[in-house]
Design a protein around this nucleic acid. Structure first.
Lengths: 92, 92
DNA sequence: CATGCTTACGGATCACGTAACCATG
DNA sequence: CATGGTTACGTGATCCGTAAGCATG
């Protein structure tokens, strides 16, 4: 599992469409297909149902989605925290 | 920033020693040195002080450590959640 | 036959391990 | 001079984009 895979998963889940997610991520479709497949392989379970209209989240994917978002948010928060020393307490 | 970098960071922080962390991660020292350096470059700030005895966390690294652990834990939790459907509620 | 996901494939980039290097006490 | 982190370097793995393939309504 990688952060790139999680980011790709969230984009595809939100767009329900590999093509649109690819444009949003500024990447072509094939890498995105492979990232999703790689994540599914890593987890050992499919996350989407492939329909002729696009991608539909399976229950496994629905369970993953909020956690994936939280992890990506935590990454951003960590990035910020490294740079921002906590404000000094007036009492100290 | 990658999960491999975060995992490497936690190991080096806990061991305060690249060599020991490398053995723990079943990797040789140079890749680990490079991972830490890559993380520092990505964040734009050093995380460790290099001493002749080993590695010592800087304040920036001290702020990162608990967040890195939380993120890695969240990854494991997500991995589990994908496979484990929530227990059915008796009331439902 | 239009749409949309996937596979093939060639090329670039990344990441490893061995070996050599450098700094400190 | 022992210890421990880093740099050099060659090789194998990974990942991308273009192009071709395939399935569905």
């Amino acid at each position: 599992m990688s952060l790139v895979q999680l980011e790709s998963f969230v984009a595809v889940a939100e767009e329900a469409h590999v093509g649109r997610a690819a444009r949003r991520l500024h990447v072509s479709q094939p890498p995105l297909t492979r990232r999703i497949r790689g994540l599914e392989d890593d987890l050992g379970t499919p996350l989407f149902e492939r329909t002729p209209r696009g991608m539909r989240l399976l229950p496994s994917g629905q369970r993953l989605l909020p956690r994936a978002r939280a992890i990506l948010d935590a990454i951003e928060a960590a990035r910020t925290a490294v740079h921002d020393p906590p404000a000094l307490n007036d009492d100290s």
